[in-house]
């Protein structure tokens, strides 16, 4: 599954995460650039949830930038899913199934 265009979801409010996804050439893989106020404690967990969500939507190649303000896993999943939908991944049939 590939992305049509860059897209964003989420805010910089406390307990939210702002996720930007952008298409990259096929075979590039997933690159995550993460900023977080809980990087030391939850950095690995946030990367894992983002990656798992991309994989669940069948996205193998994407550039992700995430600015986290202490979002819980459910919020991270929702914001990644919304960004993917806006980027065209949903139209291609990956969303929620």
């Amino acid at each position: 599954m590939s992305l049509d265009k860059p897209a964003q979801a989420g805010t910089l409010e406390s307990s939210d995460i702002m996720v930007t996804v952008a298409p990259v050439p096929p075979g590039s893989g997933i690159a995550i650039e993460l900023e977080s106020n809980v990087l030391a404690q939850y950095g690995d967990a946030i990367r894992r949830v983002i990656t798992e969500t991309l994989v669940a939507y069948g996205v193998a190649d994407a550039a992700v930038r995430a600015v986290d303000r202490g979002a819980l896993d459910c919020t991270i999943r929702a914001r990644v899913a919304a960004a993917l939908a806006r980027a065209g991944a949903a139209r291609q049939g990956g969303c929620g199934r």
């Binding site: 404690q41 939850y42 819980l72």
Partner: peptide, 10 residues
């Protein structure tokens, strides 16, 4: 259970 177990800070 809500937030996950934080990693110890190095």
């Amino acid at each position: 259970a809500i937030a996950g177990v934080p990693q110890p800070v190095k």
